[in-house]
Amino acid sequence: MRILLWAECQKLRRSNILLLTAFATVFIAVFVFIGGKTTVHGVDFSESSGWYMATALTWATMFILPAMIALLGSYMICREEQDDTIKHLRLVPINETKLTAAKMIVTFVLSVLIYLLLFIITLAIEAVLHFSALSIETVLDFLKMYLIQGAGVFFAVSPIIAIVPYMKKSYWLALLLAEIYSFSALFMSMSNALKHFYPITAVFGVSGYYETTVQELACCIIALSLCGCLAAVLLVGLNHSQKGKKHEEKII
């Protein structure tokens, strides 16, 4: 497994997708900052301490980062088929279940790192704006929120990443689905009942962005766990179906 993880990291080093994801993260941080400074009704939102870090987290999760993470994961899983390297990997031979698991682990780590990057950028800007208002507790609270958000978003989008290999060439649809899925969270958050079950808004419940009761927190965790289980079932099913195909080929 360690070798597979190392190999995945090596493959990513050559790809520009990481750079683009980092750029998208910087982009959202910069635009939320500019948006906060813009006074629409005579209110400068960035004047209030903590507003920027909380808003950047919300906008990033509802608009851009879930789609980027889904794209990253689906790209990593699909590239072996697309670049036709899967044949070579089968000749090595490689356990495809382990390979997919390694890809998912790398996606998970990257998801957390993307949110960590966003945290560093927003903290730096927040420190410039209101250094005196920042306390260690606030910073640690936000750090916890961002890291859990990164992990949670991975679980929330994992079924979409897992669906992509089934759709073969239709990974476009997966990206579109991820975008609509995260965007719909805007409306799901309006309903007190739905926001704890809808995976993207459930992430906010788990991370502590929403104040939740124990039952609500349990609902959020169950929703995200179900997403993770669904992704695992889909990916295991995919590997079994591939093995089935190979077995049929041998019989022929």
């Binding site: 790809s15 520009n16 997708i17 683009l20 994801t21 750029f23 998208a24 982009f27 959202i28 635009f31 939320v32 500019i34 948006g35 608009f63 851009i64 789609a67 980027m68 794209l71 790209y75 990206l175 975008e179």
Partner: peptide, 18 residues
């Protein structure tokens, strides 16, 4: 397709935020 898709995402949201 990676760069194109990322550009699409960023372009659409840049319009929204701009």
């Amino acid at each position: 397709y990676i760069l194109s898709v990322c550009i699409t995402l960023i372009y659409a949201f840049a319009g929204f935020f701009m």
